[in-house]
Simulated scan of single mutants.
Amino acid sequence: MIAFLGMGLLGSNFVRALINKGNSVQVWNRTTSKATALEAYGAKAFADVTAAVKGASRVHITLKDDHTVDEVLAAAAPGLQPGAVIIDHTTTSADGAVQRTKDWKARGFTYLHAPVFMGPQNALESTGYMLVSGDQEVIATYTPVLAEMTGQVINFGDTAGKAAGMKLIGNSFLVSLTAGLADTLSLAKALNIPISDVTGLFGEWNPGNGLAARIKRMASGSYDSPSWELNMARKDTQLFIDAAAKADVPLAILPAIAKEMDQWIAKGHGQDDWTVIGKNSI
């Protein structure tokens, strides 16, 4: 028997996929109607979280944050059967994941943090990426069942909380990328260039292909053989800002990047490779 707590878009589709694979799943959600909606697919819904976990050898969680996870697990604890494993897919802090691993082990339970890079459709189709780290015996035991839920399980070694950290790193990139794309589309609007043309450009020229090389360049600590001088990158950044200002189109992050560039130029790095602005991150 499997229990699943948290019937948001991700959790509900995880449940549907598990049922499609022949599993019996007990579900709970703070808004009970979201749990009972899964009964149409064969789940057994509970209004009480303690009852929802009774008899379950595995308890999966997809909740909001550290506080919610701790609160829900505290409420569920009286119903947990001895030896139950708690598998938490919530995006949380690394410290929170470490503390929960320690605390639940002391109480006689296994807690495994397994955050994901998956959308709702991935959860339904069992595709995407699931991240784990910590006790390698535990991970070896549960990787087969986790692999059935996702396309790939990535093991980051025996450091508890590292999977949580890697999830945050990945999400920070997605947030930064989306904010950057928002400014890119704002610039296109200012220049009266259709989004379809922007899509076409990136379809032909995919800057994402250079991501690994860019990280390697930034991590090298060597910026004195530039492929794009910081002075020139700053000049172009001002062209972006001026074009947007002329069209009265707001920009979210490019002005902040310009300010950072100015600080590095003032330190004497204008002729270095523009990736020097990430030097303090290394």
Rank of each mutant, 00 (worst) to 15 (best):
G11P: 01
E125T: 13
T50K: 08
V27I: 09
G203D: 10
L38A: 02
Q99D: 12
A212K: 14
D48Y: 05
T141L: 11
A56Y: 06
G119R: 14
S176Y: 09
R30Y: 04
T36P: 04
E229Q: 15
T110C: 05
V69M: 01
D242W: 09
L9W: 09
M118H: 04
Y142K: 11
A40V: 14
Q152S: 14
V198H: 04
D103L: 15
D70Y: 00
G151P: 03
S176W: 11
R30H: 02
V27E: 02
T90Y: 00
R58H: 15
G157H: 04
I139Y: 02
D262V: 03
R214A: 15
D66A: 01
V59L: 08
G151R: 09
N23C: 12
G128W: 02
K259I: 08
A97W: 01
D197W: 06
M7Q: 14
Q271W: 01
A243K: 08
E229D: 01
I169R: 09
Y223K: 05
T150E: 08
T32C: 08
E137Y: 09
H269T: 08
G157D: 07
N122S: 10
V138L: 02
E71H: 12
K267C: 06
A123Y: 00
M1I: 14
R107W: 04
S176Q: 12
L174E: 09
F173H: 10
L177Y: 14
D66K: 00
E39Y: 10
A84W: 03
Y142I: 11
A17Y: 08
N20I: 11
R107P: 02
E125V: 09
L239F: 13
T275W: 00
Q121D: 14
W28D: 02
S133V: 07
Q81C: 11
E148L: 08
T150V: 15
Y223W: 11
P120I: 03
V153F: 00
A182S: 06
